[in-house]
Design a protein around this nucleic acid. Structure first.
Lengths: 165, 165
DNA sequence: CTTGATAGTAAGGTTATCTTATTATATATC
DNA sequence: GATATATAATAAGATAACCTTACTATCAAG
């Protein structure tokens, strides 16, 4: 351990309890979580990656959105979404239909075939969640979710405001 | 929204408050956080990616470890660490020295040149954290960190037990 | 001194993400 | 209504962060 904090008044105040800073813990946790989810998907025989599954779930929660609006909901660039939708569409799980009010835009919806896949996704996600939150009370689980939502929205807001510059 | 939950008793119980399941929120939050950190690093002129910075911080917290032990601490595969160390070593920020007690193994330590980089990393991480946890009380911030640590350790334990099979 | 495990690494692959440029279409302006 | 500008999706191509598998050097045990 360097003596940085002591050596320099310019060094950031290292939060006493933060051996690994919050961001590192978050990124580590997310990597493990994603790996766990990927494995669960693989085990379930859904031919879906985590990103595709996430897209499927978002379309389910927000059906009928344009791609650009969906990308914004998901906090990814439109081009990132294109890739996910290409594969989901090729698999017959979503449709892209030209918006009659603006023929540049496309409306994304789930096909009926998506239903069992979505069920598999949610089951796998629930399994991973149960494992990840082993030992958590209901309240703790809800608390974690709410804290993460607030954190995500803080960052998303900042991210967006920097885009529209 | 499909009517899955109603339609099938086999469908996972969808936690009432969980529009996006916990895992999705976590993965989204982590992506935004990492992007924010990358931007902060770029802005600070450190020629480091998030993964390299994370490695640097881990070596600072756990100096003198062998690569395999360090990889385990970081919850990545040894080969993933090799890439990070290759670049950090090329940049003159870490050294890999043969362990005299086992000449297969290498001991990783920071060089003196790493000090300012590490300071930059911690400053950037602190900035990102301040932004991400805008509106959080001290207690909430600590709570989030502890919940994430527990979650990470749950997943890491599972991950490890599956390896040694 | 062989035999089998272990530490690091080379080679190569995948996923998720981005940026930049292109095309079609819409909207505003003159 | 012709022209300029903005927007929606996308093609092309890059990068970071992982992983798996196979090889090499070394150790440790018989």
């Amino acid at each position: 351990m360097t003596d940085l904090a002591a050596a320099s008044p310019l060094a950031p105040a290292r939060p006493a309890s933060s051996e690994p800073p919050l961001g590192f813990v978050l990124v580590d946790a997310a990597r493990l979580y994603r790996a766990r989810i990927d494995r669960a998907f693989e085990g379930a025989g859904l031919g879906l990656t985590a990103g595709e599954a996430r897209t499927l779930a978002y379309v389910d929660f927000h059906p009928g959105l344009r791609q650009s609006a969906l990308a914004e909901k998901m906090n990814v660039e439109p081009m990132t979404l294109v890739g996910f939708l290409d594969r989901l569409e090729a698999a017959g799980l979503v449709t892209r239909e030209t918006d009659p009010r603006d023929r540049r835009a496309k409306i994304v919806t789930l096909t009926p075939e998506a239903t069992p896949h979505l069920a598999g996704v949610l089951t796998a996600a629930a399994t991973a969640r149960r494992e990840a939150t082993c030992g958590f009370s209901e309240a703790e689980q809800a608390l974690l979710r709410d804290l993460l939502l607030r954190l995500r929205d803080n960052l998303a807001r900042e991210h967006r405001s920097r885009d529209e510059k």
